[in-house]
């Protein structure tokens, strides 16, 4: 499986994703400059966190017009995989590859801390190595991660099992208190209809080594790599 980590001007987690995929997981991975539109050689594209175009105007609003984004629709339709982390998730929303939008955190502050996440669906390419109800400990770092979607969209997400992660207590209970940004339904991560496109606010690459304090993020990386090998 070959990964491509997309670099927008202002991305700042691209090196982290690249490092985890290559040095921790031994995967094949390249950087993909946002101006490239030929992405056929990749099986999975990673839209990393950061502040593409400074988050000026709205996070992700300008990055979505990069040539690489134009190619992304066709890429997903071919059954290939896209994961958008934090700013990458915001880009996917702006591009309409995932439904909904991001509002400012309720506190209005940037917040960087470990959160607990309840795994809501373990039958996806991204999570099949986990089990439903499992609690993951992964950091978040964002100012606009307050997910919003209208009622109809929410119901559709819910009914089709496309809500993948929700903020929760260490015990797994989904409570208001455990919600770090005010997102509707404590939503932290969702998929598209075919489960090829995954967007999430938490940073799995920051929880992929023991020395950093958690390896819970490996579940996502390993799931997609196993899936590509035909397992799960």
């Amino acid at each position: 499986m070959r990964f491509g980590v997309v670099v927008f001007p202002g991305s700042n987690c691209e090196a982290d994703c690249y490092y985890v995929l290559r040095d921790v997981l031994g995967a094949e991975v390249d950087y993909v400059w946002h101006g490239e539109s030929d992405i056929d050689r990749y099986d999975c594209l990673v839209l990393p966190g950061g502040f593409s175009y400074g988050d000026y105007l709205r996070p992700g609003a300008i990055a979505r017009f990069s040539p690489v984004m134009e190619s992304l629709k066709g890429f997903a339709e071919k059954g290939k995989f896209i994961i958008g982390i934090c700013n990458g998730f915001q880009v996917l929303l702006e591009a309409g590859l995932l439904p909904g939008a991001m509002l400012w955190n309720e506190s209005l502050h940037f917040v960087c801390r470990y959160v607990h996440l309840r795994l809501e669906n373990d039958r996806t390419p991204w999570t099949h190595l986990g089990s439903e109800g499992q609690v993951l400990r992964i950091p978040i770092a964002h100012q606009q991660g307050n997910y919003y979607a209208d009622e109809k969209t929410l119901r559709a997400l819910e009914d089709s099992g496309r809500i993948i992660l929700r903020y929760c207590e260490p015990s797994g209970e989904v409570t208001r208190r455990a919600n770090p940004n005010g997102s509707v339904g404590n939503i932290a991560g969702i998929c598209d209809e075919d489960f090829n496109v995954f967007g999430l606010m938490p940073h799995p690459e920051r929880a992929s080594e023991e020395v950093l304090g958690s390896t819970d993020g490996l579940l996502i990386w390993r799931s997609i790599m196993e899936h590509a090998r035909g397992n799960g």
Partner: peptide, 9 residues
């Protein structure tokens, strides 16, 4: 429509 506003919100 395309850039300055996000029609979702």
């Amino acid at each position: 429509r395309r850039l300055l506003a996000n029609p979702v919100i």
